[in-house]
Write a protein that binds this DNA or RNA. Structure first.
Length: 514
RNA sequence: UCCUCGGUAGCUCAAUGGUAGAGCAUGCGGCUGUUAACCGCAGGGUUGUAGGUUCGAGCCCUACCCGAGGAGCCA
């Protein structure tokens, strides 16, 4: 792979350096031209931003006739013997590239422009004009094209102007961000993340930065990654032969967090409405299209709230962030609908207009019993739902997201609130078509005696939960929350099937090259 | 981790146990206000790795590596 990290310079068939115009001289001319047309803003514009984003040009924010400068990467070049070339340049600010029309009169046309190919970086100054061709409203009639970086060996440049498989793109993760599909997924992901913060900010929630390193493994959600500075080849031992963690960095065992929930509960019971949004780590050996070893999770927690309020919040929340994508990323969503998943846009549109189906676990079991099809695993009350059952509920029975509530206590975590019936807890899962469980949440057990009884029942040590129990001793309140797997939400929105394609650098078992 | 399927040119894929091919990409030429342009020519291969069976293996067998789909765990 190191062979692909070439020093910048002309390609083997590119122009020799002596033939090229001085980049310094051209750059200053370009800056002077661009400065006059710089977009206005109430915030200062740095010199580095003294050029135009392609998104603004295509949106018509700059009038035709203006002289503008763009900076970006070449997608394709088509030559016309009428004495010009068409160069599609993208800069990531929107889905579409801008078509640059390069006349053969350019001083570096034969030596450089005619040799441009996919991946080359360029700075183009020219006049914004109405397009004579189909497919775009405006195009850039080039006055000067500066080649900033050549593609060292076009024959082995991994990105071609064609459809690549998602599996292949994963192998070139450092370059796949230049493709249509990953670029679109990146913009949608950002749109969702911004909408998450906006949603909570508008409702008076505080973003709590819960710790990434946790010093106890009492979080109870599966395998954890150990954090240690001990020398693995020479571990300190206690007299009875065990590893002596008192000599480790934190003086005790430490791990990467699998959830911010327990920590954020303490802030909830003081600031009322809080949420976390950060990375989460699971060391499970999961090889599926829905699991990552490192993923991002959003965990709101609300005080003086029950399970219904929790489900209401989940619904409002998802509707809000999906609406944001429809409002802000129509270009990218149109691409997903055309090339990735036909339903991508219509699914979101119906999502923001309709409510979730809600049913109790007990009702779900009944519905599954009446299902006009056979399941590989028969289901009965007290069992956890299998993937096939969840899929049936949301994909076939309801054909939209379903909130399943009030599960048997024996299949759920210790902190979930025990219901009046004594055999179920106030837990909920939101199941989305094609994804499965996208949200898991619950009302928390706020009664100390009931919590203690649950800890005993599940043989969990009370000592390590001392601070969590304190919340129930000092001014306890009913509270509830949930966790949304951020990447699963991006999968759902874009229609991209594999979770490894909606995060820049996926971490999974045997997979962390980049 | 388990089950199933797969790995052939830069990419996507063909090839009855008998000479390893196409499209796209790349290079060169032609043509054209073009739109993943089009036409022609050319270069490009230790068939995932290591063994084995056979006169002969891309194809059959064994092990391993990697990937995909499904399952479990979960978000």
């Amino acid at each position: 792979m190191t062979g692909r990290f070439h020093a910048p310079g002309p390609g083997p068939r590119g122009a020799p350096a002596a033939c090229r115009p001085s980049p310094v001289a051209l750059s200053s001319a370009v800056r002077a031209l661009a400065g006059a047309a710089a977009p206005s803003s109430r915030y200062p514009q740095g010199a580095a931003m003294a050029h135009h984003m392609i998104s603004k040009l295509l949106k018509g924010e700059v009038p035709v006739g203006e002289t503008v400068t763009i900076k970006g990467w070449v997608r394709t070049r088509r030559d016309s013997k009428a004495g010009l070339s068409f160069i599609n340049v993208h800069d990531g600010t929107c889905f579409a590239p801008l078509q640059v029309v390069a006349p053969s009169e350019l001083p570096n046309y034969a030596t450089e422009v005619a040799k441009l190919g996919a991946g080359c970086s360029v700075i183009v100054t020219g006049e914004l004009v109405a397009s004579q061709g189909q497919g775009q409203n405006v195009e850039l009639k080039a006055i000067a094209i500066e080649v900033v970086g050549w593609v060292d060996d076009p024959e082995t440049y991994p990105m071609q102007p064609k459809r690549h498989s998602m599996e292949y793109l994963r192998e070139v993760a450092h370059l796949r961000s230049r493709t249509n599909v990953i670029g679109a997924a990146t913009r949608v992901r950002n749109c969702l993340a911004q909408a998450v913060h906006r949603f909570y900010h508008e409702r008076g929630f505080y973003w709590i930065h819960t710790p990434i390193i946790t010093a106890s493994d009492c979080e109870g959600a599966g395998e954890m990654f150990r954090v240690s500075t001990l020398d693995l080849a020479n571990l300190p031992r206690t007299p009875d032969g065990k590893v002596d963690y008192s000599q480790d960095f934190f003086g005790r065992e430490a791990f990467l967090t699998v959830s911010g929930q327990l920590n954020v509960e303490t802030y909830c019971c003081a600031l009322s409405r809080v949420y976390t949004f950060g990375p989460t780590f699971r060391a499970e050996n999961s090889n599926t299209s829905r699991h990552l070893s490192e993923f991002w999770m959003i965990e709101p927690e609300i005080a003086f709230a029950d399970l219904k309020a929790d489900a209401d919040l989940a619904e409002d929340f998802l509707r809000y962030i999906f609406k944001a994508v429809l409002d802000e990323r129509g270009d990218d969503m149109a691409f997903f609908a055309e090339h990735v998943d036909k339903e991508a846009v219509s699914r979101l549109e119906s999502f923001v207009e309709s409510s979730f189906e809600r049913m109790d676990y007990t009702q779900a079991i009944e519905a599954l019993g009446k299902a006009p099809r056979k399941f590989e695993f028969p289901i009965s009350w007290g069992m956890d739902l299998q993937s096939e059952h969840e899929r049936y509920l949301c994909e076939e029975l309801c054909k939209r997201p379903v909130v399943v509530m009030n599960y048997p206590k024996d299949i759920k975590a210790f902190y979930m609130r025990l219901n009046e019936d004594g055999r179920t807890v106030a837990a909920m899962d939101v199941l989305a078509p094609g994804i499965g469980e996208i949200i898991g949440g619950s009302q928390r057990e706020e009664r100390l005696d009931v919590l203690d009884a649950r800890l005993d029942e599940m043989k969990l040590p009370k000592e390590v939960y001392w601070w969590y129990r304190d919340l129930r001793r000092y001014g306890t309140v009913p509270h509830a929350g949930f966790g949304l797997g951020f990447e699963r939400a991006v999968n759902y929105v874009t229609g991209i099937a594999n979770i490894r394609d909606v995060i820049p650098y996926p971490r999974a078992p045997k997979s962390a090259e980049f």
